[in-house]
C-alpha cells in the first residue's frame, strides 16, 4: 500500500514519537512537534499512538491514496477535501484507491497531522521513522517529502468513519499564547530588572520558527549581571562555556531574541539559557504561527508536574473516548 504525493506542501515531513537516545551525539529526539494532536490522529484511525504519519506546517500537501485506508487529520484547523468534498478534521474517514486529499488555507494553529491506518512504513533510522532533515536522517530519504514521492504504508485495517475527538480534548494555544516556564540553568546571569521584564513583556513569534527552535521578538533587550567572563566562554555577556541544551530550553543570544529549542533541537552550544518551557506546553509551541502574541508565565516545579499530569490525563481521555 502506498501514498502518492501530488503536492508536498511547505515542509511536510514523516514523523513519529521520535528517536530518544542519541542526543549526546547531537542527534535530537525529533518526532511530532504537537505530540498530543499526533497521538490523537493515530488513535482515530486505530493505529498505535507512535505509528509514523505526516506533519505539515502552514500548508497542506495533496495526496493520492493507493488503496482503501482510514485517514484522520488533527492539529491546526485547515479546510480539507477528499476529491473536492469537504471533510472534518479530528474525525476518521475512509478513502478509496485513487482518491485525492487536498487542503485549503490554514485558519488557526500551525501544524496538521495526517494519520493513515497501518502507518507510514519507511525504513526506521536509529529506531524511528522521524525525519531529521539537518542530519539527512529517517523519514523519506532523510528529507521533507516532494512531489512524485511514493510512500509505503503498512498493513492496517479500516476503522469506522466518523470517529471524533471531542472538542474539549483538542488542545490549542490561547491568544496571547501562554507558555509556562521554569527558571533555572543560567537564570542568575540576568539582572533582576531583565528577569522581571522577560515575564512582563509582550512577545510575538518571529519568522525564524521551525522544528529546531522558535524565536520570539518584541521584548526589551536583556541586561546581564556584571562579571569577568569565565575562561573559555567568549567575551559577550550572553556567552557561556558550551554546555548541553535541553528540549524547551530558552537561550537568548546577545540578550536580544529568546529562542525556545524544540524537537529537532541542537544539543548544546555557547549561549546562556534562562530556563525552559515546561514539558506540558511543548505541544502548544508547535501550533504557533509567526506574529502570534506570546506571554511567558513563570511557574514552579510542582505546577510543571501538575500540568504534565493534566496533559497525560487528556491523552488517556482521548484514548478512552476512542476505545
Amino acid at each position: 500500500m502506498t501514498l502518492e504525493i501530488i503536492k508536498p506542501g511547505l515542509a511536510t515531513t514523516i514523523q513519529d514519537l521520535g528517536r530518544p537516545g542519541y542526543f549526546h551525539l547531537g542527534i535530537p529526539e525529533g518526532g511530532a512537534m504537537d505530540r498530543l494532536a499526533f497521538r490523537a490522529a493515530n488513535l482515530l484511525v486505530g493505529n498505535d499512538e507512535g505509528a509514523a504519519g505526516l506533519e505539515a506546517v502552514f500548508m497542506g500537501p495533496e495526496i493520492k491514496f493507493g488503496a482503501e485506508m482510514s485517514v484522520a487529520v488533527t492539529g491546526a484547523e485547515m479546510p480539507m477535501f477528499l476529491d473536492g468534498e469537504p471533510r472534518e478534521t479530528w474525525t476518521s474517514f475512509t478513502v478509496k484507491p485513487g482518491q485525492v486529499l487536498s487542503f485549503g488555507f490554514l485558519k488557526t494553529g500551525a501544524r496538521i497531522y495526517i494519520a493513515i491506518s497501518g502507518g507510514i512504513d519507511t525504513p526506521p533510522a536509529l529506531g524511528s521513522r522521524s525525519t531529521y532533515p539537518i542530519g539527512a536522517l529517517g523519514g523519506f530519504e532523510g528529507r521533507a517529502i516532494a512531489a512524485g514521492d511514493v510512500i509505503p504504508v503498512g498493513d492496517g485495517s479500516v476503522v469506522a468513519e466518523g470517529r471524533v475527538v471531542p472538542d474539549a480534548l483538542r488542545r490549542r494555544p490561547g491568544s496571547p499564547a501562554e507558555l509556562r516556564v521554569l527558571t533555572g540553568l543560567y537564570w542568575h546571569r540576568l539582572t533582576e530588572k531583565s528577569q522581571k521584564a522577560f515575564f512582563e513583556d509582550d512577545w510575538v513569534v518571529a519568522p525564524e520558527a521551525d522544528r529546531m527552535g522558535y524565536r520570539f521578538r518584541g521584548g526589551q533587550p536583556m541586561e546581564f549581571v556584571d562579571r569577568p567572563q569565565p575562561f573559555g566562554a567568549g567575551s559577550d555577556p550572553s556567552n557561556i562555556v558550551d554546555g548541553c541544551y535541553s528540549y524547551g530550553s530558552i537561550q537568548v543570544p546577545g540578550g536580544l531574541e529568546p529562542i525556545v529549542l524544540h524537537r529537532d533541537a541542537v544539543s548544546g552550544g555557547g549561549y546562556f539559557t534562562l530556563g525552559a518551557v515546561i514539558s506540558a506546553d511543548m505541544d502548544l509551541i508547535g501550533q504557533l504561527q509567526p506574529n502570534t502574541p506570546v506571554k511567558f508565565k513563570r511557574v514552579e516545579m510542582d505546577e510543571a508536574l501538575a500540568a504534565r499530569a493534566e496533559r497525560k490525563t487528556m491523552i488517556s481521555e482521548i484514548r478512552q473516548s476512542l476505545s
Binding site: 535541553s246 530550553s249 530556563g275
Partner: peptide
Amino acid sequence: YGGDEHIYVEIDDE
C-alpha cells in the same frame, strides 16, 4: 533544573 525533565550540572563555569 532545565524544565521538568532535565538536570544540568555545571562542574565549573570556566
